[in-house]
Amino acid sequence: MNQEEQRKTLSLVVPVHNEEDTIHLFYNAIEEIKPKVNATIDFHFIDDGSTDKTLSILRDLAEKDEHVHYVSFSRNFGKEAGLYAGLQQSKGDYVAVMDVDLQDPPELLPEMLNEVESGEYDAVGTRRADRKGEAKIRSWFSSQFYKWMNKVSQTHLVDGARDYRVMTRQMVDAILSMTENQRFSKGIFTWVGFKTKYIPFENRERVAGNTSWSFWSLAKYAVEGIVSFSTMPLTIVTFLGLITFGASILAGIFIVIRALISNTSVAGWPSMVTIMLFIGGIQMLSLGIIGRYIAAIFMETKKRPIYIAKEEK
Protein backbone atom coordinates (compact mmCIF):
# COMPACT_ATOMS: atom_id res chain seq x y z
CA MET A 1 0.00 0.00 0.00
CA ASN A 2 1.54 3.31 -1.11
CA GLN A 3 1.57 6.56 0.82
CA GLU A 4 -1.32 8.04 -1.20
CA GLU A 5 -3.55 5.09 -0.28
CA GLN A 6 -2.61 5.33 3.39
CA ARG A 7 -3.55 8.99 3.62
CA LYS A 8 -7.03 9.79 4.77
CA THR A 9 -9.42 11.78 2.60
CA LEU A 10 -10.87 15.22 3.24
CA SER A 11 -14.03 15.97 1.26
CA LEU A 12 -14.66 19.65 0.55
CA VAL A 13 -18.38 20.46 0.19
CA VAL A 14 -18.79 23.68 -1.79
CA PRO A 15 -22.30 24.94 -2.70
CA VAL A 16 -22.26 27.32 -5.68
CA HIS A 17 -24.89 29.47 -7.37
CA ASN A 18 -23.90 31.73 -10.27
CA GLU A 19 -20.25 31.73 -9.20
CA GLU A 20 -18.45 31.66 -12.56
CA ASP A 21 -16.05 34.37 -11.38
CA THR A 22 -14.95 32.63 -8.18
CA ILE A 23 -14.68 28.89 -8.88
CA HIS A 24 -11.19 28.96 -10.43
CA LEU A 25 -9.97 31.36 -7.75
CA PHE A 26 -11.23 29.02 -5.05
CA TYR A 27 -9.80 25.93 -6.73
CA ASN A 28 -6.37 27.56 -7.12
CA ALA A 29 -6.40 28.73 -3.50
CA ILE A 30 -7.04 25.18 -2.29
CA GLU A 31 -4.36 23.82 -4.60
CA GLU A 32 -1.86 26.19 -2.99
CA ILE A 33 -2.49 24.88 0.52
CA LYS A 34 -2.70 21.21 -0.46
CA PRO A 35 0.94 20.47 0.56
CA LYS A 36 0.09 21.66 4.10
CA VAL A 37 -3.02 19.46 4.40
CA ASN A 38 -2.36 16.00 5.80
CA ALA A 39 -5.02 14.34 3.65
CA THR A 40 -6.08 13.77 0.06
CA ILE A 41 -8.59 16.47 -0.88
CA ASP A 42 -11.71 15.73 -2.90
CA PHE A 43 -13.89 18.57 -4.18
CA HIS A 44 -17.67 18.22 -4.14
CA PHE A 45 -19.21 21.25 -5.84
CA ILE A 46 -23.00 21.54 -5.67
CA ASP A 47 -24.44 23.69 -8.46
CA ASP A 48 -27.69 25.11 -7.11
CA GLY A 49 -29.42 25.74 -10.44
CA SER A 50 -26.96 28.35 -11.75
CA THR A 51 -27.90 30.32 -14.88
CA ASP A 52 -24.37 31.47 -15.80
CA LYS A 53 -21.32 29.42 -16.84
CA THR A 54 -20.89 27.77 -13.44
CA LEU A 55 -21.85 24.27 -14.62
CA SER A 56 -19.62 24.49 -17.70
CA ILE A 57 -16.64 25.44 -15.52
CA LEU A 58 -17.35 22.54 -13.16
CA ARG A 59 -17.49 20.12 -16.08
CA ASP A 60 -14.08 21.31 -17.29
CA LEU A 61 -12.54 21.02 -13.83
CA ALA A 62 -13.93 17.52 -13.38
CA GLU A 63 -12.41 16.47 -16.71
CA LYS A 64 -8.98 17.80 -15.75
CA ASP A 65 -8.91 16.67 -12.10
CA GLU A 66 -10.22 13.29 -10.95
CA HIS A 67 -10.62 14.68 -7.44
CA VAL A 68 -13.26 17.18 -8.60
CA HIS A 69 -16.88 16.04 -8.44
CA TYR A 70 -20.08 17.99 -8.90
CA VAL A 71 -23.85 17.71 -8.68
CA SER A 72 -26.09 20.07 -10.64
CA PHE A 73 -29.66 20.65 -9.43
CA SER A 74 -32.65 20.75 -11.76
CA ARG A 75 -33.43 24.21 -10.35
CA ASN A 76 -32.49 26.49 -7.49
CA PHE A 77 -33.28 24.68 -4.22
CA GLY A 78 -31.30 26.95 -1.89
CA LYS A 79 -28.00 26.71 -0.03
CA GLU A 80 -29.38 24.40 2.64
CA ALA A 81 -30.26 21.82 0.00
CA GLY A 82 -26.79 22.30 -1.47
CA LEU A 83 -25.14 21.59 1.88
CA TYR A 84 -27.24 18.49 2.41
CA ALA A 85 -26.46 17.18 -1.09
CA GLY A 86 -22.76 17.83 -0.60
CA LEU A 87 -22.69 15.96 2.69
CA GLN A 88 -24.52 13.06 1.01
CA GLN A 89 -22.00 12.97 -1.84
CA SER A 90 -18.93 13.23 0.38
CA LYS A 91 -17.06 9.99 1.01
CA GLY A 92 -14.03 11.28 2.92
CA ASP A 93 -12.89 10.35 6.39
CA TYR A 94 -13.32 14.03 7.20
CA VAL A 95 -15.66 16.57 5.63
CA ALA A 96 -15.24 20.33 5.33
CA VAL A 97 -17.93 22.82 4.34
CA MET A 98 -16.71 25.99 2.61
CA ASP A 99 -18.04 28.95 0.63
CA VAL A 100 -16.56 29.40 -2.83
CA ASP A 101 -16.15 33.19 -2.54
CA LEU A 102 -13.06 32.81 -0.29
CA GLN A 103 -14.68 34.60 2.62
CA ASP A 104 -13.73 31.40 4.41
CA PRO A 105 -9.90 31.52 4.76
CA PRO A 106 -8.42 28.39 3.09
CA GLU A 107 -5.20 28.80 5.08
CA LEU A 108 -7.08 27.76 8.24
CA LEU A 109 -7.92 24.37 6.76
CA PRO A 110 -4.67 22.57 7.77
CA GLU A 111 -5.00 23.73 11.38
CA MET A 112 -8.69 22.77 11.49
CA LEU A 113 -7.99 19.30 10.12
CA ASN A 114 -5.10 18.72 12.53
CA GLU A 115 -7.33 19.61 15.50
CA VAL A 116 -9.97 17.10 14.40
CA GLU A 117 -7.40 14.42 13.58
CA SER A 118 -5.96 14.73 17.09
CA GLY A 119 -9.21 13.25 18.39
CA GLU A 120 -9.78 16.03 20.89
CA TYR A 121 -12.59 17.54 18.84
CA ASP A 122 -15.27 16.10 16.56
CA ALA A 123 -15.49 19.34 14.62
CA VAL A 124 -13.58 22.58 14.27
CA GLY A 125 -15.61 25.52 13.02
CA THR A 126 -14.90 29.18 12.38
CA ARG A 127 -16.50 32.42 13.43
CA ARG A 128 -16.05 36.00 12.37
CA ALA A 129 -14.32 38.03 15.08
CA ASP A 130 -15.63 41.26 13.52
CA ARG A 131 -17.94 42.46 10.75
CA LYS A 132 -15.71 45.00 9.04
CA GLY A 133 -16.89 45.88 5.56
CA GLU A 134 -20.47 44.79 6.24
CA ALA A 135 -23.37 47.27 6.23
CA LYS A 136 -24.04 48.46 9.79
CA ILE A 137 -27.78 47.77 9.64
CA ARG A 138 -27.15 44.24 8.37
CA SER A 139 -24.52 43.66 11.05
CA TRP A 140 -26.88 44.90 13.75
CA PHE A 141 -29.73 42.63 12.64
CA SER A 142 -27.34 39.68 12.47
CA SER A 143 -26.07 40.21 16.03
CA GLN A 144 -29.64 40.65 17.25
CA PHE A 145 -30.65 37.38 15.61
CA TYR A 146 -27.95 35.43 17.46
CA LYS A 147 -28.79 37.21 20.70
CA TRP A 148 -32.51 36.47 20.62
CA MET A 149 -32.15 33.04 19.04
CA ASN A 150 -30.05 31.93 21.99
CA LYS A 151 -32.71 33.29 24.37
CA VAL A 152 -35.67 31.51 22.76
CA SER A 153 -33.97 28.27 21.79
CA GLN A 154 -32.19 25.52 23.72
CA THR A 155 -29.81 25.14 20.77
CA HIS A 156 -26.97 27.61 21.35
CA LEU A 157 -25.57 29.37 18.30
CA VAL A 158 -22.12 30.95 18.39
CA ASP A 159 -22.32 34.60 17.32
CA GLY A 160 -20.59 35.07 13.99
CA ALA A 161 -20.29 31.32 13.36
CA ARG A 162 -19.78 30.34 9.73
CA ASP A 163 -20.79 27.15 7.96
CA TYR A 164 -17.04 26.72 7.36
CA ARG A 165 -15.97 23.75 9.48
CA VAL A 166 -14.20 20.38 9.40
CA MET A 167 -16.15 17.41 10.78
CA THR A 168 -15.59 13.73 11.44
CA ARG A 169 -17.46 11.16 9.41
CA GLN A 170 -19.45 10.21 12.53
CA MET A 171 -20.75 13.76 12.92
CA VAL A 172 -21.62 14.03 9.21
CA ASP A 173 -23.58 10.79 9.39
CA ALA A 174 -25.51 12.17 12.37
CA ILE A 175 -26.36 15.32 10.39
CA LEU A 176 -27.50 13.25 7.39
CA SER A 177 -29.82 11.25 9.65
CA MET A 178 -31.86 14.45 10.05
CA THR A 179 -33.85 14.41 6.82
CA GLU A 180 -36.17 17.32 7.58
CA ASN A 181 -37.19 19.51 4.65
CA GLN A 182 -37.04 22.81 6.52
CA ARG A 183 -33.31 22.90 7.23
CA PHE A 184 -31.20 25.36 9.21
CA SER A 185 -27.67 23.98 9.16
CA LYS A 186 -26.18 26.28 11.80
CA GLY A 187 -28.74 24.92 14.25
CA ILE A 188 -28.36 21.33 13.04
CA PHE A 189 -24.57 21.46 13.45
CA THR A 190 -25.11 22.42 17.09
CA TRP A 191 -28.13 20.24 17.80
CA VAL A 192 -26.40 16.95 16.91
CA GLY A 193 -23.88 17.66 19.64
CA PHE A 194 -20.25 16.49 19.36
CA LYS A 195 -17.35 18.45 20.75
CA THR A 196 -16.69 21.54 18.63
CA LYS A 197 -14.01 24.21 18.72
CA TYR A 198 -14.34 27.60 16.97
CA ILE A 199 -11.44 29.53 15.45
CA PRO A 200 -11.98 33.30 15.09
CA PHE A 201 -10.86 35.21 12.01
CA GLU A 202 -11.24 38.73 10.66
CA ASN A 203 -14.08 39.32 8.25
CA ARG A 204 -13.23 39.12 4.56
CA GLU A 205 -14.87 40.48 1.44
CA ARG A 206 -15.76 38.33 -1.54
CA VAL A 207 -12.89 37.92 -4.00
CA ALA A 208 -15.21 38.40 -7.01
CA GLY A 209 -18.84 38.42 -8.09
CA ASN A 210 -21.88 39.41 -6.07
CA THR A 211 -23.58 37.63 -3.21
CA SER A 212 -26.97 36.05 -3.85
CA TRP A 213 -27.96 36.72 -0.24
CA SER A 214 -30.19 39.80 -0.09
CA PHE A 215 -31.41 41.33 3.16
CA TRP A 216 -34.84 39.79 2.55
CA SER A 217 -33.44 36.31 1.93
CA LEU A 218 -31.39 36.56 5.14
CA ALA A 219 -34.52 37.63 7.04
CA LYS A 220 -36.43 34.61 5.72
CA TYR A 221 -33.47 32.40 6.65
CA ALA A 222 -33.60 33.79 10.20
CA VAL A 223 -37.31 32.97 10.43
CA GLU A 224 -36.54 29.42 9.25
CA GLY A 225 -34.00 29.10 12.04
CA ILE A 226 -36.41 30.28 14.72
CA VAL A 227 -39.24 28.04 13.52
CA SER A 228 -36.91 25.04 13.22
CA PHE A 229 -35.33 25.30 16.66
CA SER A 230 -37.74 27.16 18.93
CA THR A 231 -41.39 27.03 19.96
CA MET A 232 -41.03 30.16 22.09
CA PRO A 233 -43.04 32.35 19.63
CA LEU A 234 -46.04 30.06 20.23
CA THR A 235 -45.58 30.45 23.98
CA ILE A 236 -45.45 34.24 23.60
CA VAL A 237 -48.68 34.15 21.58
CA THR A 238 -50.33 32.14 24.37
CA PHE A 239 -49.30 34.69 27.01
CA LEU A 240 -50.46 37.60 24.83
CA GLY A 241 -53.84 35.89 24.51
CA LEU A 242 -54.09 35.41 28.27
CA ILE A 243 -53.07 39.02 28.96
CA THR A 244 -55.58 40.51 26.50
CA PHE A 245 -58.31 38.17 27.76
CA GLY A 246 -57.64 39.20 31.35
CA ALA A 247 -57.56 42.87 30.39
CA SER A 248 -60.90 42.56 28.58
CA ILE A 249 -62.52 40.93 31.65
CA LEU A 250 -61.29 43.74 33.89
CA ALA A 251 -62.43 46.36 31.40
CA GLY A 252 -65.88 44.73 31.22
CA ILE A 253 -66.22 44.73 35.01
CA PHE A 254 -65.19 48.40 35.12
CA ILE A 255 -67.76 49.38 32.47
CA VAL A 256 -70.59 47.53 34.25
CA ILE A 257 -69.74 49.09 37.64
CA ARG A 258 -69.48 52.57 36.12
CA ALA A 259 -72.83 52.14 34.40
CA LEU A 260 -74.51 51.05 37.65
CA ILE A 261 -73.05 53.96 39.62
CA SER A 262 -73.36 56.86 37.18
CA ASN A 263 -75.94 55.48 34.74
CA THR A 264 -74.46 57.63 31.98
CA SER A 265 -73.60 56.68 28.44
CA VAL A 266 -70.22 57.83 27.17
CA ALA A 267 -69.49 57.64 23.44
CA GLY A 268 -65.80 56.74 23.82
CA TRP A 269 -65.22 56.10 20.15
CA PRO A 270 -61.46 56.81 20.10
CA SER A 271 -60.74 54.46 23.01
CA MET A 272 -63.02 51.75 21.60
CA VAL A 273 -61.41 51.89 18.16
CA THR A 274 -57.96 51.84 19.73
CA ILE A 275 -58.80 48.76 21.78
CA MET A 276 -60.31 47.01 18.77
CA LEU A 277 -57.25 47.72 16.65
CA PHE A 278 -54.95 46.56 19.45
CA ILE A 279 -56.76 43.26 19.96
CA GLY A 280 -57.18 42.77 16.21
CA GLY A 281 -53.46 43.37 15.68
CA ILE A 282 -52.54 40.80 18.32
CA GLN A 283 -54.92 38.30 16.73
CA MET A 284 -53.41 38.80 13.28
CA LEU A 285 -49.88 38.54 14.69
CA SER A 286 -50.81 35.37 16.54
CA LEU A 287 -52.41 33.83 13.46
CA GLY A 288 -49.32 34.71 11.43
CA ILE A 289 -46.96 33.02 13.88
CA ILE A 290 -49.18 29.93 14.20
CA GLY A 291 -49.58 29.87 10.42
CA ARG A 292 -45.81 29.84 9.95
CA TYR A 293 -45.50 26.74 12.10
CA ILE A 294 -48.42 25.11 10.31
CA ALA A 295 -46.73 25.90 6.98
CA ALA A 296 -43.58 24.14 8.19
CA ILE A 297 -45.65 21.10 9.18
CA PHE A 298 -47.40 21.21 5.79
CA MET A 299 -44.10 21.20 3.91
CA GLU A 300 -42.75 18.31 5.99
CA THR A 301 -45.84 16.16 5.47
CA LYS A 302 -45.46 16.40 1.69
CA LYS A 303 -42.26 14.32 1.96
CA ARG A 304 -40.79 16.01 -1.09
CA PRO A 305 -37.07 15.47 -1.78
CA ILE A 306 -34.74 18.13 -0.45
CA TYR A 307 -33.23 18.48 -3.93
CA ILE A 308 -33.39 16.94 -7.41
CA ALA A 309 -30.11 16.27 -9.20
CA LYS A 310 -30.07 16.79 -12.96
CA GLU A 311 -26.41 15.99 -13.62
CA GLU A 312 -23.51 14.72 -11.54
CA LYS A 313 -19.99 13.43 -11.89
Rank of each mutant, 00 (worst) to 15 (best):
V237H: 06
E63N: 11
E107N: 10
M232H: 13
G119F: 02
D21E: 15
M167N: 06
I57P: 01
I249N: 13
H67Y: 04
P233D: 09
V266K: 15
L157C: 05
M149H: 08
A219N: 10
M276D: 13
F201R: 04
P106F: 03
V14H: 01
F215N: 13
T155R: 05
K132F: 04
Y94E: 09
K220T: 06
R131N: 10
K53Y: 09
P15M: 04
I249G: 09
S50K: 00
T54R: 02
I41F: 05
A62T: 07
L176Y: 09
A295E: 15
K34H: 02
V207E: 14
G246I: 01
Q3M: 03
A62G: 13
E20S: 11
E66H: 15
Y293F: 09
K313Y: 02
E32N: 10
K151P: 00
K34N: 12
T301Q: 11
F215W: 10
H156N: 14
E20W: 10
T235K: 14
P233C: 03
I257V: 08
A309L: 01
V158K: 14
A161H: 05
R183S: 02
L108R: 11
R169W: 10
S50E: 00
V95K: 05
Q182D: 14
H69V: 01
M171Y: 06
T54G: 02
V37C: 06
S228M: 11
E63W: 04
L108Y: 15
Y146N: 08
D99M: 00
F239T: 15
L157R: 13
V95Q: 02
R162L: 12
K132S: 05
V16L: 01
W269S: 05
S139L: 04
H69Q: 05
T301G: 06
T179Q: 12
T155V: 14
G225I: 09
D52S: 01
G280A: 09
V227S: 03
V68H: 05
D173H: 11
Y307I: 01
G78Q: 03
E224M: 11
S217I: 08
F229N: 04
Q170A: 12
S212Q: 14
G246E: 11
T238E: 09
T211Y: 10
V227N: 03
P110H: 04
K34L: 09
E20K: 13
I253K: 14
R304H: 14
D99E: 07
Q6R: 15
F43I: 01
F254G: 06
M284W: 14
N38Q: 13
T168G: 09
R169F: 07
I289A: 04
D122Y: 04
K197I: 11
